[in-house]
Design a protein around this nucleic acid. Sequence first.
DNA 1: CTAATCACCTGAAGGC
DNA 2: TGCCTTCAGGTGATTA
Length: 269
Amino acid sequence: MPELPEVETVIRELKSKIIGKQIQKLSVIWHKTFVNNCETDIEDQTVRALRRKGKYILIYLNTSALIVHLRMTGQLLFIEESSTQIDTAYLRASIQFSDGSRLLFNDKRKFGRIYHVSEPEIILNKVGIDAMSPKLDIAKFRTMVKSSKMKIKSFLLSQKYISGLGNIYVDESLFRSGIHPASVSAAIEEFAIDSLYSEIRKVLTFAIKNMGSTISDYRDANGNMGNNQNFFRVYQQQGKPCVSCGQEIQKIKLGGRGTHFCPQCQRMF
DNA sequence: CTAATCACCTGAAGGC
DNA sequence: TGCCTTCAGGTGATTA
């Protein structure tokens, strides 16, 4: 479900709500959700900071950290103590804070994970540079794209080179930069790589401004849907006319994923 | 190195 | 109505 803009939205909301709060109890309902790789007690630790790398949410505590990945249907919901009726149908874990508020982890498909680690870098070192990182400048992006023989869609979808992009935002970025998703990365001309770089940034920034995209399950930390699904140009737009040329948007399978594009506007390199 | 397939899970939607 | 197949914001393992 969630890609970079959705995860970013959740983190921004949670920062103002849970930093400084003391964890009283962690309850795990679906055992596979919680992976404990650290002996330290979670109980009595205080939330110190939150940050994101790609689609990973890092919650720093006093002497250890929680790393959350929402995968397809995960949700992190913050609940005030006064809240009553909550839907527990897909509740997989929850954190109770000492002031009575709670952080719920809902996950319909059970793919999501909460890792408890002493050293977050062990997981994060396998994840590529964040797509919104200032350190990912145009020169670095060019070098990375030019040195891969993968199809550009698969390259962008892989998290080991650049992290944070998923199926929606890859399709949208490739459309806006006029690149066919099956193009070989290394064959893409520099002007198009530069365009892809700036369109990725624009697409992600705009989606964050819209609180992410909700296809079905995504909710932010307050339980609200995103808004960005109303602005898709190709994702799930198959059969509709391209906003730019009027040609019918196509859907194919690429790298095992549904892939949406305009056969007229997106050039094969 | 790249690609394809399956596995992990649940539910919605479409075909017959 | 009911059964069966396919598909879904992700990723990791395994096999060509």
